[in-house]
Design a protein around this nucleic acid. Structure first.
Lengths: 218, 218
DNA sequence: GCGAAAACTATACCCGACTAAATTTTAAGT
DNA sequence: ACTTAAAATTTAGTCGGGTATAGTTTTCGC
């Protein structure tokens, strides 16, 4: 896919990385709102306008790797084994990434600084919510294209809601000083509970298209 | 409770209303971002500082009645019939309000203008997301205090997610020009589907109080 | 009616994200 | 080499939300 990293492309990538690296450094040191675009530009040895050339909004300098997360989710759904439900593919992926200390999992002592910066800035929290929404939309489209019965919007909303609640609870505990290793088991357990609820709720509808009045099985 | 609307209180309430009314008028006419606080102050015949005295952020002038919604939800949960699950109390309330054209329901031709203003402003959309989050937190606390098994955070996240997906779909259709009367049946149907999924997913866990570590079936 | 507190006003100001336009540097393709 | 087009820069802003301060009017409790 990326056979030709032409000089131009490499330079662009490098400039982008330099901006986001220096920006993040400053954010970590002093907090998001206390750093101006001008300072980032100076630190990255780039003009102010160039910063905006690469990152339309200030928040994007910090949430730099979101596109990768979107790709990850997309690949997980599209590349799942034949016949495997979307839900279970995502579930496995999320649990795996949590265990491995991947950023999407959010469980690692390295991420505490990240969480602290986000928690400390209204603008970043707002952008985080926005990102969750975008991810939800992507998911909804993926689910619709996989044709699993219910409208993707609903399933995606439940999925993101469930995951977010676990993610935030875990992030909060890490922010409160608990070590990732101590939090991980509870986090995985919370994911299990959440996905069990989803699976139970969505399962009967997935197979039959008829309108069953929801029956409690035992 | 409100036996004494003293003169002072009445004047305060009136000033507040005047600001939010004139503000909303202007927003409806020209869009949120195209109106400045100064203009609102002038229209309401009040100083700029007074505006900020009543509404800490510009967005709050438009989302003026959110506190009422929070109260409504709170009252619905706290005032439900003995033994009635939180979920079903909210479900009934939401369906009823949708049918009656209440703002929380979002189904009424009057609301199209409102939706259009929100859709047209990034700041308002962001604030709307924030409000949904606040509501989710309130709900989580209510659910926890009602002691219905699962952590309130999870249930609340699912609930808000489910409702939001229906709400947004309906709002989008009204924005696209469909009449409320035509959209209402589908909206109610969507709510039914959503709450059925939730009920099915949450039901079995609600009864058992023991901590079963959810076992992976394979 | 009086003193205190609360609400309100006027004014001046800051600040930094973001934009527009014109110019210069740099790499790509032939 | 030489042209061309993208990318980076320079420069010079705007813009409006939000704040700080100090002084004035209005209501309240007595």
């Amino acid at each position: 896919m990326n056979e030709t990293p032409s000089l131009r492309e490499r330079k662009k990538a490098e400039t982008r990385r330099r901006i986001s690296d220096h920006g993040s450094m400053l954010f970590y040191e002093r907090g998001f709102d206390e750093v101006t675009i001008g300072e980032i530009a100076e630190a990255a040895d780039v003009s102010k306008v160039t910063v905006f050339n690469y990152f339309p909004r200030k928040e994007d300098i910090f949430f730099d790797r979101v596109p990768e997360v979107v790709d990850l989710v997309t690949d997980t759904v599209r590349g799942r084994r034949a016949g495997e439900p979307v839900l279970s593919a995502l579930r496995d992926m999320l649990v795996r990434h949590a265990r491995e200390g991947h950023p999407l999992g959010g469980v690692d002592d390295r991420f505490v600084h990240f969480f602290r910066v986000v928690a400390g800035s209204a603008a970043l929290r707002a952008r985080a919510r926005e990102i969750a929404d975008e991810l939800e939309a992507v998911l909804a489209a993926l689910i619709d294209e996989s044709g699993e019965g219910l409208p993707g919007r609903l399933t995606a909303a439940l999925l993101v809601g469930a995951y977010r609640s676990a993610f935030l609870a875990t992030a909060a505990r890490q922010l409160a000083g608990e070590r990732a290793a101590d939090v991980l088991p509870d986090h995985v357990a919370a994911l299990d509970v959440a996905f069990d609820v989803l699976a139970r709720g969505l399962a009967p509808v997935r197979s039959g298209s008829e309108k069953h009045p929801p029956r409690d099985p035992h």
